[in-house]
Design a protein around this nucleic acid. Structure first.
Lengths: 154, 154
DNA sequence: CTAATTTCAGTCAAACTGACATAC
DNA sequence: CGTATGTCAGTTCGACTGAAATTA
């Protein structure tokens, strides 16, 4: 009796976009967490370093906006990055409330390593899709994300 | 000085599928959590009830496999569902280790309500996409999920 | 003996909130 | 004055682990 070992999910779930997205995100998160974790990094580190690299040195509040993180999490993340000397945190002479966060040389090198690592992980994540399909998926998800990010701002 | 209010994310992130998937999942999760939360339900409840409805009464371990949940979380979820009398938990006469979990009449009605609720949420989630695009997205994500679910099993 | 099931008691990362001090 | 910034302390939810007791 009870010989099912199928692991099949109910159609109600497999047909729901929210299920597909959140479950795929579980795998994506684990992949990235493991890949970054293997070199002692975490997603938050990359997000902050990417924001500093692309938008230049900035205040922590600005980094929060560019990384989609909460200021409280930015504080903790920068604490960790600064401890390893990947970023510097210096007072803004023009506004004494602010810290200016900048990448150090070590930080730039670190970011390059993480870039390479992340590229490998993307390839693993998207393994079953060809180049065209990857492009499609990226476009569709980008539009969803833009839409909901804009709504969240309002 | 420092007049950026753009909220733009770095290209390193917006170009990474893992970022698009996990960030979209944040919005999807919040949407579902809020929508279900408004009627006192949570995602775990729906997952278990959907599995029981589609595969019939089953042991908790079987439900864990069909819902993609951990047995420990299944225990907690069934505690909650049973407290509201949406499911029954009765000992399996053929195997005294097992509980057989079944939907009650109230549970079937509850599931119908949540189905309707979830349909509305899917529409909100996919608002910016037309029917064709929704289909494309569902197919692509389904293939990704199948691939990684199969890998996780091995 | 090994393996499966249920249960409990946790950890963890990321998202998220609230409060406070300081400075604009 | 109200608003922005940085910091700290916390919650929540889902994913995930470990161990113990029971039974196949």
């Amino acid at each position: 009796v009870d010989e099912q070992v199928s692991d099949e999910a109910p159609a109600r779930l497999t047909g729901a976009a929210s299920w597909l997205i959140t479950q795929t995100a579980v795998h994506a998160s684990r992949l990235v967490a493991d890949g970054f974790g293997a070199v002692g990094a975490r997603g938050h580190h990359y997000r902050i370093m990417a924001a500093v690299a692309e938008f230049g040195p900035a205040s922590q509040a600005t980094l929060a906006r560019h990384s989609g993180m909460y200021v409280s999490d930015v504080v903790a993340t920068i604490n960790e990055l600064a401890k390893d000397d990947y970023v510097s945190r210096s007072p803004d002479p023009g506004d004494r409330r602010r810290n200016i966060v900048a990448l150090t040389d070590a930080g730039r090198a670190r970011l390059r390593d993480l870039d390479a690592q992340l590229a490998r992980l993307q390839d693993e994540l998207l393994a079953p899709l060809d180049a065209d399909e990857r492009e499609q998926l990226t476009l569709l998800l980008g539009r969803l994300l833009d839409h909901h990010a804009a709504r969240a701002r309002a």
